[in-house]
Amino acid sequence: MTSKIYPGETLPLQKDVNITLGPGAYKNPITQEIIPVSAGLLHCKTNKKQTNQLVYVETKSKRYIPKLNDFVVGVVNGTLGESYKVSLQEGSNNVLLSFMGFPNATKKNRPNLKNGQAVYARVSQDVSEIDIEIECIDPTTGKEGGFGVLDESGFIFEVSLNFANELLFNSSSIYFEKLSEKCKFEIAIGLNGKIWIKCGEGMKYDDNNELLPSSLNDMKYTVAAANYLKNCQFISKSQIDQSLKDSFKHLS
């Protein structure tokens, strides 16, 4: 069930069920009242046994607030003690990525990241009163699990947070299926709205930091794919084909 909701309205909550609050729902500690705090699409789901109800408001947002277990793309900004400072978004507080937050890292065998390098990581601690922490380990296996340093042959661009959420979690979304008709790509989607993408072999540089002529075509495809995905957040599903065509029209 989805409908539009505005801040402070009464939520359609059932009595005598366990209620789980998602983003956009807030329990006022003084009045103990549960209210929506933003305007957007209300989702209210009850499980089959009628024992649990989930309430959240889906909104468009550009500012990322870290939440536990979110996957994020960050840029290393410096070091602080035993940790790297990582920027998830311009203007926001830096988060910490411990030297130990990598698989098989020890005191002697620590990763060596430079300023400006991008990482794909998971938020491991989200208490907003203290510094947020991220790590590059899959907690279930203790191994890499797809996290780690994103190489420099890719390209990072930004989309709105709810669209990043859609791309990462909606397995039935057709955006990547359509894109795969045009080129081969590798992608890392951060819920902080940053997306890292690499088409083909990506952009390779020589020793003087100049783009190799052989990777020029891959660079064009990478930029076109990024433009296509950025454009998709402003159009309806029926226009996706046209947007794909427009983005790749100069490429063979």
Partner: peptide, 11 residues
């Protein structure tokens, strides 16, 4: 405030 998705007690 609505556009920036800042939490509000009431409209």
């Amino acid at each position: 405030l609505i556009d920036a998705n800042i939490a509000l007690y009431e409209s």
